[in-house]
């Protein structure tokens, strides 16, 4: 266990080294949120309620989405894929911890530092908005906290898995890191990150209901807003999906190790 925590600490320290870049990313994330909030505020001009949402509830939705994004989103495809293509992962392969686990621990280390930046800032923005809009009180019950934390973990595993699959595919394809764009588009549209399910047309809502990406943003936010509670069906569905996702990664990694070559 100590070696795992040591790796997480190491990557946390490495993230500190790149703190100015992480601050820039945090500012850009907040800029995106600000523009999105401005758009929705303009949509609500002259109306108290749209599609069952009051303006405060919707602002709360997007601020919570920003916090969830800060905790769960993984963006290592680019540089990890480049390392694979350039044959620079030898030193990871000779270590007693499997490469995918090292990637996971490094991401947790990096993410921990980023969370320390983005969460307090978003909460400050949340506070400022609460002065001007009735964002509605969040009622925390032990069960809603458990569900929310579980869903955060699910969201992180999905994000991480998609990113890792893109890295594994770079063992075969040039430019596999570009797959992150497919990830962003799918998540932006189908998880409720950029648009709540209630604002989607019926056909799209059916698609989102059938897919597991809703457990990343739409469902955890609805759980916090007391609009929804997880059922046994949800748990079974989530577990089956995650098991399938992990099986794909294990299979890809086995194939990738057989394919990898490097000089030196």
């Amino acid at each position: 266990m100590r070696r795992y925590t040591a790796l997480i600490t190491l990557w946390f320290i490495k993230a500190l080294e790149y703190r100015s870049e992480l601050i820039v990313w945090a500012v850009l994330t907040l800029l995106n949120t600000t523009v999105l909030l401005a758009i929705w505020i303009s949509v609500f001009r002259g109306a108290d309620t749209v599609n069952g949402y009051q303006i405060g509830q919707l602002l709360q939705y997007f601020l919570l989405a920003t916090i969830i994004n800060g905790i769960t989103a993984s963006h290592f495809e680019n540089w990890r894929s480049k390392e694979v293509r350039e044959g620079k992962i030898d030193h990871y392969l000779t270590k007693p911890i499997p490469y995918p686990i090292q990637v996971l621990l490094s991401d947790i280390g990096n993410r921990s530092f980023y969370m320390m930046l983005i969460i307090p800032v978003t909460l400050a923005v949340y506070f400022v908005f609460s002065l001007f809009y009735n964002l509605g009180a969040i009622v925390w019950t032990p069960w809603s906290i458990v569900q929310f934390v579980l869903l955060l973990a699910v969201g992180y595993i999905i994000e991480f898995s998609f990113a890792l699959i893109a890295v594994f595919l770079s063992f075969w394809f040039e430019g596999a890191e570009g797959l992150e764009h497919f990830k962003w588009i799918s998540i932006s549209l189908l998880s409720g990150y950029m648009i709540p399910i209630e604002f989607m047309p019926t056909w799209m809502r059916s698609a989102v209901d059938a897919l597991p990406l809703k457990y990343m943003y739409a469902v955890p936010i609805q759980v916090i807003q007391q609009r929804l509670s997880l059922t046994v069906y949800d748990f079974v569905y989530i577990l089956s999906f995650l098991a399938g996702l992990i099986a794909v990664q294990v299979w890809l990694w086995k194939k990738a190790t057989m394919r990898y070559t490097s000089a030196g």
């Binding site: 303009s42 609500f44 109306a47």
Partner: peptide, 13 residues
């Protein structure tokens, strides 16, 4: 994406 948002009220600002 913007088509969906416009769909909510018929206009944006």
């Amino acid at each position: 994406f913007f088509d969906l948002i416009v769909g909510a009220r018929g206009n944006i600002a």
